[in-house]
Amino acid sequence: MHLKNKFDVGKFTILAEMQPPKGVNVSAMVNSATRVQKAVDAFLVPEMGNAVMRMSSLGGAMILQRKGLETIMQVNCRDRNRIALQADLLAAYGCGILNIMGVSGEDPGLGDHHQTKAVDDIDLMTLFKAVSTLQTGKDLAGNELSGAPAFLVGANVNTRVTGDELEKELSRMAEKAEAGVDFFIAPPVFDIGAIAPFMEKVDLKKTRIIPTVMLLKSVGMARYLDRHLNVTISKDLIQRLMRAPDKATESLAIATEIISAVKAAGFAGILISAMGWEEKLQKLLDRV
């Protein structure tokens, strides 16, 4: 059963982020993914997040698909023009990739190739339009395609905002949904209460929202996320991690609790971001 069908029947879906390598050694990615394949519905393959150059999402996703794993290929507007974007979408579908996620892509100034040009030929909403145009059997120039793709399309949504920012985010989410987005990936959540204002405004039965559950690898990481990345992590949670004799075990326990809370709140699923602890995924998924 593909991800789309699982969504359709209301299954609580488990997605896992699987970062392609910076290089050509794919064994760690493949091993991490295959180890947990029974518990994971699809692997989200990021497209050079934070503008750090590495193997493309298309490449990573194709390698995982070849192993029989379902993937979500990320597509960004930063690195390709409309010709390349459409070409890679056709290539992806031709290789069995049925799910994509559109993102704008961070500015190259944030990554490891500061001097490069960002392409940004089309923006994110135009990218979604390009996808829906391809799905009608035509390209953006109006030319007929020999066979049209039928993707399940994802996008980001920021569930952490409140007040006016929440209104803006809801409007943008509605815009994305109208443009053909089927599911939304939300940022890391450590306290379900922190996203209560968002949950009050959105019917989770009608909109598929998938919060990210991030493994806290250290107290330092937790503090950094809380202070600099606008991810609310309570002092209690940080102290709990601090007091724990085995940080990894405690981190997995915390993640398990968050997953249960997300599931109970009626979300469509979770995306697990292991942050390099992919080898611990199986332990986590055994608990879920």
């Binding site: 500015d107 190259p108 100034g109 500061h114 001097q115 490069t116 040009k117």
Partner: peptide, 12 residues
């Protein structure tokens, strides 16, 4: 060397 486009419009 590849051109540094940060000083152009590409850098914002």
């Amino acid at each position: 060397a590849p051109k540094d486009w940060q000083t152009a419009r590409d850098g914002g």
